Simulated assay, not measured.
Amino acid sequence: MQALLKNKSSRDTLAQVGFVGSILLMIVVFAITARSNLQAQGMTSGFGFLDRATGWGVNFSLIEFSTSDSYLKVIWVGILNSLFLGAISLVLATVFGTVVGILRVSGNKMAGLIGTTFVEVFRNVPLLLQVFFWYAMLTALPKPKQAYDILGVAFVSGRGIYLPGLNVSGMSVFLSVLALLVATALVLFIAMSRRFRHTEPTQKRTFNRLIWLGWLLVTVALFWLGRLPETTLLNLPYLKGLNFREGIRVSPELLACIIGISIYGAAYIGEIVRAGFNSVSSGQGEAGHALGLTPWQTFTRIRLPLAIRAVMPTLINQYVWLFKSTTVGIAIGFVDFFMIISTSINQSGQTLELIAILMGGFLIINYSIAYVLNRVNDAIKLKGTQLRS
């Protein structure tokens, strides 16, 4: 035994086994205690409640849902709503953040001042406060009868924004947006991956056109298959009584979350993008000018790709953090994954099981985001002596 303890490798192994054993013991004790407390209160444990009807409804869902549907389906509704909010917010935050980052490194004093002001204002105000602010602004808009009319096809009121809609299922729209994100990722992969470095520009343009054509065909097929029976494909909103009918209603809760998360995330992404541009040495741009490239060609073919490669790991972390921030929707009544779980806990009393589902759901979603983006990073990053400027 003494000889075993004198060996450093053996001591390290015993320490690790002891640590893992302590964690497992704590988990077992916690599970036994929780089970005893539940039994003492006459509560049953397990996931059998997922098949029970909820008895309550939701005010926003991408799929059909009624009060007679199960807890399993309402949890799926919450997951889809969070994914929908996260997908829109992350895309908008990336677009706005990139613009802000470019403004800050443009060299133009007015553009730089605008970008700096944007970052300093929205980065230093808490996200929850921003969401409350935008929600108050949106709900203060006129009532439906006094709504702002946009060319007779869209209306803006305190009850939401009413847009022309398609008579298709919410799942078809969600899958179409997902296909759009995949197509965008493929286009970026072709533009920046080392595998396509020596591909002719005409071939790259052909690949891109095929990708967008594929997305268009997939979207048309999804909308055709998901079209609601006995309805026209397009419907326009119209005022009837005290509210609008038909069309798509973008609720103030959803819109406030999108605006708040997008702007807040753009302030951080703008700084990340600015750091990426600053990491590109001036010699790279000078080499482009020496080769006869225009300023725009130098920016799009040299500075921008190198900046994206430099900041991709930081952006991945920011995207994961931004998706987790979608939980602020519960503060203004948006029906996201977190709100669904909270309501389910109050209605069913299955606290431990539902918290486990919530943690597992966010773990899977965030890990999937990080995994996909890390694979993109592996495909575009420079290796070895390529890192030298």
Rank of each mutant, 00 (worst) to 15 (best):
G226V: 03
G214Q: 07
G57S: 15
L103Q: 07
S45C: 05
G42R: 10
I332Q: 06
L233G: 02
M137W: 13
I345L: 04
G276N: 03
I23P: 06
V91I: 13
L90V: 13
Q2R: 11
I302G: 02
I272F: 04
Y367D: 03
F338C: 07
L239Q: 07
L163F: 05
K383A: 11
E64W: 01
T94G: 06
I341K: 00
G55P: 04
I211V: 15
I308D: 01
P305H: 01
N346A: 13
T116Y: 11
V168M: 09
L151C: 07
L85M: 10
G349V: 00
I27A: 15
L24N: 05
L291P: 01
V105W: 02
R194N: 03
Q386L: 11
G21H: 00
V376Q: 12
L216S: 08
Q41L: 15
K145F: 12
A40N: 11
L24H: 04
A34W: 14
F155G: 05
T314H: 03
L25M: 13
A267M: 01
G112T: 10
M192S: 08
G115L: 07
D149V: 06
V17G: 03
N208F: 03
V311H: 03
G260T: 12
V273M: 15
F323K: 01
L363N: 01
L373F: 15
I341E: 01
R195E: 12
T231M: 13
L62K: 01
L293F: 14
V58S: 11
V376A: 13
N81H: 08
T67V: 14
I88K: 02
S10T: 08
D149H: 04
N124F: 13
F223C: 10
S342H: 10
I263F: 06
F189Q: 11
A34K: 11
I88Y: 00
S348R: 09
I341D: 03
G265F: 09
I365P: 04
L14Q: 02
Q350A: 14
T314P: 05
L83F: 06
Q284E: 08
G288H: 04
M359I: 14
L163D: 00
Y319K: 05
S70V: 02
V58C: 09
L151F: 15
A191I: 01
A221L: 12
A87N: 06
T231I: 03
F30L: 11
V220L: 13
L129C: 12
M137I: 14
I355N: 11
R209Q: 00
S9T: 09
G360W: 00
S157Q: 07
S262W: 06
M192T: 05
A287I: 07
I150V: 15
R388Q: 13
A310C: 09
D12G: 14
V58N: 07
L304D: 05
V95P: 07
P252Q: 09
G165M: 05
A307V: 07
I364V: 14
L306T: 08
E246H: 11
T116A: 14
R249Y: 00
L242E: 13
A111S: 15
G97R: 08
Q203A: 12
